[in-house]
Design a protein around this nucleic acid. Structure first.
Lengths: 195, 195
DNA sequence: CGGTTACTTGACTAGCTTCAAGCCTTGTGG
DNA sequence: CCACAAGGCTTGAAGCTAGTCAAGTAACCG
């Protein structure tokens, strides 16, 4: 989902810079803005009382995030933070609704973006039916865009990130990856993972 | 999401009856139709190789389901089956796209339905960060519509269903509910659960 | 070069899953 | 109205294994 920056600015949008690790919104907050990444990396995640976190999505240049709560005017079900120094354009709810009203093609694009997001979340449910760590990791990797059997690819995630997406502990991820490497299900060269 | 039945029929939709336990589509199938429940109960779920299943959603009268794959023309990420004898209106992809084109208010309603569905899926991520069975069950119950602290409510799910939604084994659900009952966190009267 | 973050390894343990067996409840048909 | 079947619920015992804790090592960044 990407709304043209000029349209956003015309309807009252403006850019904001976030430092690395800065919070954009917290679980439970009431939403005020539509957000679109101009530059940087945003992580949306859920955390529980003990501080354990589960990564839900990563958003980069051009991606919008947090649209469902702003459209529905419901408290955020998750939190968002900048993973690196990032610039984000934000616009108030009214401005977003005006844009949707004035530009049917943007509303349509948003519909398809939402469809894709539901689709991806449904697919990642495979992670939660999986009983073994190996299966969870495989399911997670299958859902990454660069995954295909043709040529070996560098896995673009750290072990910690894999742990955050699959709900496993980092030690379990490490041990499982080593086991899979021994069983020749993937390759580890110089700490880097290839599939 | 609900499209007026007359509109569906005008654009080529028609009703189909499914017996109890009949499959509507399977994970991996290419989608051909938009489905809307006229009567009955449809379960959408994911299953893994060992036959363990994870319930993703229940759809009833008026609800549509399986829209993201049909819009995106991507293989179903999950399966759907009738939990009881059900009647469903279905319509081919072209008809659905025509309706979206001809009725902007339906496209708009679909946008908000999708937003709600993403929202609910994001919330249910709380189940997957939870480390203990009790926490998972509590998070699941919190996401049920009838949940509120005001008056005690009958939990409208069987233990087996709670297990299917939380990814726990039924024995674990039973033991956890009994423990919670002893700790007065909920009530069990005659096998029925109240919160 | 120093600090931070990621990665690794080993030992131990809690507690969920599994297996097995039986009880309870509900709906159906004769 | 009763008997039976099917599915849901319950319990106990045992085993596995992912999580936890601790103590490092290795890579990366400014």
């Amino acid at each position: 989902m990407q709304i043209d920056n000029n349209i956003l600015i015309t309807y009252g949008g403006y850019a904001i810079k976030y430092e690395k690790e800065a919070m954009i919104f917290h679980e439970g907050d009431l939403p005020n803005y539509y957000y679109q990444v101009l530059e940087g990396t945003i992580k949306v995640y859920t955390s529980n009382a003990e501080g354990k976190t589960l990564a839900q999505s990563i958003f980069k240049n051009g991606d919008s995030f947090g649209e469902p709560p702003i459209l529905l005017s419901l408290p955020y079900p998750n939190s968002a933070k900048a993973k690196e120094e990032s610039t984000i354009i934000r616009i108030a709810r009214e401005g977003l609704l005006d844009i949707i009203r004035d530009y049917p093609e943007i509303a349509q694009e948003m519909l398809f973006t939402f469809a894709k997001r539901i689709y991806d979340k449904s697919k990642s449910a495979q992670i939660w039916v999986s009983t073994t760590p190996e299966e969870k990791i495989v399911q997670f990797l299958k859902n990454t865009p660069s995954y295909n059997q043709e040529t070996p690819q560098l896995v673009p995630y750290t072990r910690k990130q894999i742990a955050e997406f699959t709900g496993l502990r980092i030690e379990t991820v490490i041990r499982t990856l080593i086991k899979m490497h021994k069983e020749k299900k993937l390759n580890i060269i110089n700490h880097k993972i290839y599939y």
